[in-house]
Design a protein around this nucleic acid. Structure first.
Lengths: 341, 341
DNA sequence: ATGAAAGCGCTAACAG
DNA sequence: CTGTTAGCGCTTTCAT
């Protein structure tokens, strides 16, 4: 059923010959609609259509130096948090007529650097999501080609960050309104920029409320990090915990359930990210939602701006967050003796 | 902090001049290590390194006609089912020194076709995952450039499919061993190739067991499809349901919980895919796991083979599935009166 | 408004 | 082993 040869793609010269015009006219018909006779253009376009002609992007890139391609690097494609980023970036790129190349850094700075180097010549710019690269390396890369960061701020580099200040305040307000007098923060990886922002926001908000905020950890920001974190919570007298992210929060809840601890009856649990699954785990998780798709598309837009004209002092774009209250948080119960397994 | 101009990338001529050799020698130093004097090569490479030279992929592509780029199209990037496919494909592509371009077809045949057309000239081939394109269009596209399909079989086109025959038999065996005398299949989109395969496998296996298999639906293969499906199940006397996919299964379980129906006490629920979340929904879902990462990497490999040499009769690669038994399936209870909300 | 010609960066003949 | 030359497909002056 397969045809013998993948037949050669039609080139601009093929179209030119078939249409009886010069190659440059065909080129103009596609790229400078105004600078060519209307009738000629119609004719050329028709012939091109018939021949199934599409401009060769490589040739265009060679000439212009621009590839019309953008790179997006994420730590882990299967992490649902980044699915939204990818989706938003893909949509924005397509809308701008650009192609998106995806790279998975495997949470590894070395892989990330390697990808930047390898992909560099093939793209007009990079979106680096939750980059693990040190500041100076980021800056160096930004000198070579436009870069936009997501949830990572580095002076001189464009970035899109979530509004953790407001978000964490909302979380603390929520817990306070439920009668909690303090909470435990279950920390994630120490190098995580967003983790640091989350904790500092929470601490400041707690102070403003006269609440006691304690930080435990670091824990792996995964389901597997749950048991250790949950046990530490149980050993404390905390009535509420805020986890580094939803993965950890869900892992904690699972362990608490095994231990016969009622959530939110005995302990309230809050996460970050509002990942896929946060609404159907048990109990459904109260969490701070980030607009990941927006972050992805905004980052692409920032990049596009930079490729048009070098921006001297790229601004940090702050995206609103949103507290989604579900079933994992509730009123603090007085003196309910905690049952242990 | 940003430097004024993104300095011009070094070209092969820059290196040639700096090294005092011809451009072609530089080229050979990179691509034909054997055909150049060892000392010359060392020198050239050193100069290139110093100048930060990297070959321009666009120029290479223009010359060779090969872009060293592969396209991967999925219906919905945020659907966790495809995250594994993307990850596996990305890994395989990187391992092969190829770049992966990602496209989201938005479950829309028109968008898919458009993406194929737009990306076509920029890639050496496509992996189409769960394509919605009709057979003839798929075949037509396959004539223009190498294509590999995932979970979709079209004669003459390479494909990677899950072993639904064995998988569905495992599901039915499992239900039979728990004492169920029949089950309801909650169908997904009518155009879904894998949906059709799932149902025909289940039906055949049921027949072999003398079990009664009934098909309901179609339902949206999402959480939102759950309520309608669950209510239909309740109206029947089914003791077990098999849903088109995990999303629907989880949606069904959620509704059943709202209705006070115990899973698996009163109804057993089985899904397909083993998506992220299937293990932490409540109860944890029994489901048929597909090796999505494998599917992604295998598809890339099949594509790479095709780009090397045109394969006349590409084989269909069947990937094993795996029944993951969790908490949502159990022994059928006799005569337990069903409580309705 | 259109054609002719040069050149983007690289590789592949073809000499030498 | 290495230099010279031509050309991949396209855009872009520069003429006309």
């Amino acid at each position: 059923m397969t045809s013998g040869q993948p037949r050669r793609r039609a080139t601009i010269t093929d179209v030119a010959e078939a249409a009886g015009v010069a190659a440059s006219t065909v080129s103009r018909a596609f790229t400078r609609p105004g600078r060519v006779n209307h009738a000629t253009r119609e004719h050329v376009l028709a012939v091109a259509e018939e021949l199934g002609y599409t401009p060769n992007p490589a040739a265009r890139a060679l000439e212009s130096g621009r590839t019309n391609t953008l790179g997006l690097l994420v730590p882990d494609i299967t992490n649902p948090y980044f699915a939204g980023v990818i989706k938003g970036a893909e949509r924005a790129a397509t809308a701008a007529g650009l192609t998106l190349v995806l790279g998975d850094t495997q949470e590894n700075p070395a892989t990330e650097e390697q990808l930047v180097r390898r992909l560099g010549p093939a793209v007009d710019g990079f979106v680096l999501s939750a980059s693990r690269l040190p500041d100076d390396e980021l800056r160096r890369a930004a000198e070579l080609c436009p870069i936009a960061l997501i949830n990572r701020a580095t002076p001189g580099v464009a970035c899109i960050v979530a509004d953790y200040d407001t978000g964490t305040r909302q979380i603390v307000d929520h817990l306070a309104s439920l009668g909690h007098r303090g909470f435990v923060f279950l920390g994630g990886p120490p190098e995580s920029w967003s983790g640091a922002r989350r904790w500092s926001g929470l601490r400041a908000a707690a102070q403003a409320h006269g609440m006691v905020a304690t930080r435990f950890g670091p824990y792996a920001p995964t389901l597997a990090g749950g048991p250790a974190a949950a046990d530490a919570v149980l050993a404390s007298e905390a009535t509420a915990v805020v986890a580094h992210n939803d993965m950890l929060a869900i892992g904690v809840m699972r362990r608490l359930a095994e231990r016969g601890v009622d959530v939110p009856g005995q302990v309230s649990v809050v996460g970050f990210d509002d990942i896929f699954g946060a609404d159907f785990c048990n109990p459904a998780l109260t969490t701070l939602a980030e607009r990941t798709e927006d972050a992805g598309s905004r980052a692409i837009e920032a990049l596009v701006q930079q490729t048009h004209a070098r921006i001297e002092h790229p601004a940090a774009r702050v995206l609103p967050t949103q507290l989604v209250v579900r079933a994992s948080t509730g009123r603090v119960r007085r003196a309910s003796p905690r049952r242990r397994a």
